[in-house]
Amino acid sequence: MASTILIAIGVLFNLFGCIGLIRLPDVYNRLQSATKTVTLGTWSILIGVLVRYGFIDIGVKALIAIPILFFVATVSAHALVRGSYIFGIPLGKKSVKDDYKEQYEK
């Protein structure tokens, strides 16, 4: 039962992340919403798997997937942000501050 609740919470957070992917205005904000929420949602699903099966092979593998997912999500988010800035995609209209510009143009 607890595992089903954890999986349901995970799917709910994934839903929020995907709504953010559709609604937010520019690529940087989309990445903000999507990478955090989808990663925590997937962690929640994996912990649900661990709670359901305990420490046999499937549970341990789900536990190993959590740190892998942490590094994968954060490093690829960083690479995408930096890549799209260098590619020349401007920040959205609502943006108030851009300190990176002067550094990048040097």
């Binding site: 799917v11 995907c18 992917l21 989808v38 997937t42 997912l69 890549g83």
Partner: peptide, 14 residues
């Protein structure tokens, strides 16, 4: 498009 592909890759794990 790349953001979409990246997030899709994480969703598949779920």
């Amino acid at each position: 498009r790349m953001v979409g592909i990246d997030i899709f890759g994480i969703l598949v794990v779920g």
